[in-house]
């Protein structure tokens, strides 16, 4: 019997963790009145198609109608991909410059990048917003993504990895007459593929889950992301909300990042343990 205790505890853990999602999934298949009455069923209902199409096509019909999910999912995808790819590209380039060159100002550049770790959006909300407005980036995808692309974490990770690449690789490349960019493209990039994949998973989730930033720099409905849109549907949490459609929207909002973690688990674990933040 003692052998089974751990499994029992873990099963309870798994169930507790899955409960909120399960209830949401079930809720998204019932009609508004069933949920409004408060008798949340534990088995799926028959209204899945209409709830999901309401969320997908019109973003609900209640008082808190938001942009259709089809549009918001597209916005979220563009935002998450731009942030992830942007961070990876500029961090690869900066780490390459810092590790493989000696030039005046190298340490200053390195510490400047490092400083961004200590300045999350949350502590410079208003001045950053002012910069966005003065650069005419308010209500634009560029304003939504570019300020989030600087990345000390990714730069540090690539720097760490580049430092482990043996000097012989560089010597061989030089002897063959390859310039620095050729070395970067033909040797460094192929060697970094695993790290890039691992980092991509983490950064995609980071980008998808942004909340405060989109809330600040976008009020145009056509640019709304799904995480912010979902929260707007809740309003003050009235019982009269269209909860069935909100639940369908919640499922749509969490599905893409969860799928990325589950299907790219190996990269995800590597990325998590190596970025450490």
């Amino acid at each position: 019997m003692r052998r089974y205790w751990p499994h029992l505890w873990l099963l309870i853990g798994v169930l507790v963790f899955a409960a909120p999602i399960y209830i949401t999934l079930i809720g998204s298949t019932h009609d508004a009145s069933t949920i409004g009455r408060g008798d949340v069923p534990l088995l799926p209902g028959t209204h899945a198609a209409e709830n999901y199409s309401a969320a997908w096509v019109s973003g609900g019909s209640g008082r808190f109608t938001v942009t259709p999910a089809s549009r918001m999912l597209l916005n979220s995808t563009i935002m998450a991909l731009s942030i992830a790819v942007g961070k990876i590209v500029i961090s690869l380039l900066s780490a390459f410059a810092v590790v493989f060159f000696r030039f005046p100002g190298r340490m200053i550049a390195f510490w400047t990048i490092f400083m961004t770790l200590m300045l999350p959006v949350e502590v410079r909300i208003i001045p950053t917003y002012q910069v966005i407005v003065s650069m005419d980036l308010f209500n634009s995808m560029a304003g939504l993504t570019i300020p989030l692309i600087a990345s000390a974490t990714a730069t540090l990770l690539f720097r760490q990895f580049f430092l482990t690449i043996p000097d012989e690789y560089v010597e061989a490349a030089k002897m063959d007459g390859a310039g620095p960019m050729r070395f970067f493209r033909d040797i460094l990039l192929p060697l970094s593929v695993t790290n890039i994949a691992a980092l991509f998973v983490i950064l995609f989730i980071y980008g998808w889950n942004q909340y405060l930033w989109p809330l600040l720099v976008v009020n145009d409905r056509s640019l709304e992301t799904i995480v912010v849109g979902l929260a707007k549907m809740i309003g003050t949490g009235d019982a009269q909300n269209e909860w069935n459609v909100i639940m369908a929207m919640a499922v749509l909002a969490l599905l893409p990042p969860v799928a990325v973690v589950v299907f790219m688990q190996r990269w995800f674990l590597k990325g998590l343990t190596e970025t450490e933040k």
Partner: peptide, 13 residues
């Protein structure tokens, strides 16, 4: 992978 705001909504349900 669940966004903090989405986690809040799930627990609200």
């Amino acid at each position: 992978a669940v966004a903090p705001a989405v986690a809040a909504v799930l627990w609200l349900f």
